[in-house]
């Protein structure tokens, strides 16, 4: 069991925990704003997992400067790809959250309630 307790795995596990908490919140809360916040937590968890997956033990951030020099960089750096991907994912999460908030605002304007159970006009 101890071999699993690396820094990376702790990070990944934290990310998973957040994902599950976020999903649980998104599926059980009734208030629309809480649902949106839960999905934000879900997104954060996703991003943490992605970044944690990029880690290699004992290495530094992928930026070339005087301390790293120009040689043998592939032995010195962590994986830059997931970091790039997570940047995109964060922005996407922001976009979706913004749109969801706008929808929430509009829904409140229409019905004066933020309970998701009140928005069942189309069913069956």
């Amino acid at each position: 069991m101890e071999q699993y307790l690396t820094l990376q795995n702790i990070g990944i596990a934290t990310g998973f925990a957040l994902i599950l908490i976020g999903l649980y919140g998104g599926l059980t809360n009734k208030n629309i704003l809480r649902i949106i916040v839960s999905f934000t937590i879900f997104n954060s968890g996703l991003n943490i997992v992605i970044v944690a997956l990029a880690y290699l033990k004992g290495r530094v951030a992928p930026i070339i400067d005087d301390t790293t020099g120009l040689d043998n960089l592939s032995q010195k750096f962590v994986d830059p790809v997931p970091q790039a991907l997570v940047l995109t994912a964060i922005v996407i999460g922001l976009g979706v959250t913004g749109v969801m908030l706008a929808y929430a605002l509009k829904m409140y304007q229409n019905k004066q309630t933020l309970n998701i159970n009140d928005f069942k006009e189309t069913k069956w």
């Binding site: 992928p62 070339i64 830059p80 790809v81």
Partner: peptide
């Protein structure tokens, strides 16, 4: 680019 992440992005 010195910042590798920027280069990738």
């Amino acid at each position: 680019a010195a910042n590798m992440v920027t280069a990738v992005i």
